[in-house]
């Protein structure tokens, strides 16, 4: 098998250039999908027969919760690749994930609380899923704090990678918490083995939102990755070209 593509992925100038080219290809479809999903979710979708219009919070809550887990998995995978193959670009990618992930973990928690108040009668309960999601936020903050506390980038990469990899156990706990324990959180509506328990006019905007948020994250990650690569490679000659172009 030809591994050239893998080795090129380890080359900072190559990744810097590719990331710049790819960004608009993720950003524009993301924007279009999110705007269309907003219209579908807020206007076209009918009110839920139990939750009325309150259910529409799902269109921002579920994509944020999905991103919080997807970004963590990306971060841990990149960190592992960085550790195993000593690939600096992978460490840079992992470091670029954390702040975005923390943001959307907060959004998932707060939008969940805003949904919980009218539906459960309380903003917060120490439920397995809610608690595990709060731990996810602490993992992100711990990762960022650890990186900020270590001056040497190579050492920060290694230490934070170990934390990210250990913390990955929390991801399946969040994902399956509503099945393993008697959680107050409702069961998944979309990502389950049989068919989704939602009519199409409710489901389609949600799926568009999930895809839109995922593309959005890739675009943001690519821009952050370019910044991170530039910062790390400041001693390299190719940076002259990249910084002035």
């Amino acid at each position: 098998m030809d591994w050239t593509w893998f080795h090129r992925l380890a080359s900072p100038p190559h990744v810097y250039r590719i990331a710049g080219t790819l960004t608009p290809w993720f950003a524009w479809p993301a924007g279009l999908l999110i705007v269309a999903a907003l219209y579908g979710g807020l206007v076209l979708a009918p009110p839920d027969y139990q939750q009325g219009d309150g259910f529409r919070i799902i269109y921002v809550h579920a994509p944020s919760a999905w991103l919080s887990l997807m970004i963590y998995s990306t971060m841990a995978t990149a960190a592992a690749i960085g550790l195993i193959w000593r690939m600096k670009v992978a460490h840079a990618a992992a470091a670029s994930c954390a702040a975005v992930g923390a943001w959307f973990t907060v959004v998932s928690l707060v939008t969940g609380m805003l949904w919980g108040k009218p539906m459960w009668g309380t903003y917060w309960v120490w439920d397995p899923r809610l608690t595990a999601q709060l731990i996810l936020l602490f993992l992100y903050l711990g990762y960022m704090g650890l990186r900020a506390g270590i001056e040497d980038t190579a050492r920060a990469d290694k230490a934070s990678a170990v934390l990210a990899i250990v913390g990955i156990v929390n991801v399946p706990i969040i994902r399956f918490s509503v099945e393993w324990w008697n959680s107050i959180h409702q069961a998944p509506s979309v990502m389950k083995m049989d068919r989704p328990s939602m009519p199409a006019d409710m489901l389609v905007p949600l799926l568009m939102m999930l895809v839109g948020f995922t593309l959005y994250f890739v675009a943001v990650l690519l821009v952050r990755l370019r910044a991170e690569i530039l910062r790390r490679e400041r001693a390299s000659s190719w940076v002259r070209e990249a910084a002035t172009a």
Binding site: I34, L42, D53, G54, R56, I57, V60, H61, S64, A99, V100, W103, F104, V106, V107, V110, T111, L114, W115, K117, P118, Y216, V220, V223, R224, R226, A227, E228, L230, R231
Partner: peptide, 27 residues
């Protein structure tokens, strides 16, 4: 409950674009 949820999410989406672009410009 609905509008604050959408407002917060909108802010997060915009802020993360701005932070990423600012980080790149600063680098």
């Amino acid at each position: 409950y609905v509008w604050p949820s959408y407002a917060l999410t909108f802010v997060a989406v915009i802020v993360n674009i701005a932070l990423a672009r600012r980080a790149h410009a600063a680098a």
